[in-house]
Design a protein around this nucleic acid. Sequence first.
DNA 1: CAATAATAGCTAAGTGCTTAGGTAAATGGC
DNA 2: GCCATTTACCTAAGCACTTAGCTATTATTG
Lengths: 163, 163
Amino acid sequence: MTDHVDRILAQWRRERPDLDVSPMAVIGRLSRAAAAVHGRLDRTFAAHDLDRGSFDVLATLLRNGPPHRLTPAQLAADAMITSAAVAQRLNRLESRGLVTRAPNPDDGRGSLVSLTAAGKAAVEATLPAHLATEQELLADLSPEERETLAALLARVFHSADPN
Amino acid sequence: MTDHVDRILAQWRRERPDLDVSPMAVIGRLSRAAAAVHGRLDRTFAAHDLDRGSFDVLATLLRNGPPHRLTPAQLAADAMITSAAVAQRLNRLESRGLVTRAPNPDDGRGSLVSLTAAGKAAVEATLPAHLATEQELLADLSPEERETLAALLARVFHSADPN
DNA sequence: CAATAATAGCTAAGTGCTTAGGTAAATGGC
DNA sequence: GCCATTTACCTAAGCACTTAGCTATTATTG
């Protein structure tokens, strides 16, 4: 019942009993859980010749519905990354023929990114395995516990990123 | 009461009602919460002329107690990173005079990393602000909720990284 | 309506990780 | 006691992000 974070806390309490290190119990486990989960998800993506960033872009285009077309700025906001990172993800995806870029007829500065048939096929082939991996990661939690965890994480997110 | 992840789930349910996307509610919020929390923590580190990786190494040495000395392998295991990443963190810290490397008398292959006085001062100066930031991130959660969150995250971690 | 400011998207350079692969020392089997 | 294997640590190269800074277009404002 005692994990790595428990041992870290015990060390702090021994060396610095004057400090309240209790928040580390939560934040430390948040970091480690996210890192471990990402490692596991990445294995599934790699098994389908994708990486997390590429899947993220393709899935965003797919779930937005036909005609599976978004601006780079929309993709950046959705993925919580910079527009420069989106440009580089799109370079990779475009060179693999999974998306195409076309000028935006409504805005001469912008472009529109579309899912190709191959891109749609790639994301649709990966999606069930990805969801199965996520199910597997949550298999030990009851529906109520999942609900609780999601709600608590949403509140932490809000504290870290108000607005 | 509806956040970005809720909107993502609604899109999936409209486009792909055949799929059970419920695990995304948890995993998506875990990713986003961790990213937002890291962003907030990094601001505090930057305000004290450190980055997360450097602070992590210095704090690990400090909380292990006198003589504040560990092997690179111990630091790698603690931080869940490769030994190559530790070597690079140590290069940076050593060049700033915050740690020193010395040959390990008990093992000719290895070295021992020690916190310098300047390194100890740097981490001790940063620690209270770091803990205050963590407290701030959890301010909206009751002690019971923090306990619940930590326990649920520990179980997710265990599913993602058994052993 | 011209000048200024803001916006969209890109490339280039910097950062910190990973994987790959090298060297040197310790360990284990025979 | 030797040789093969393992271990500890490192550098180098690759990767995906960030920040900085560019160009082109659109929006604003006097």
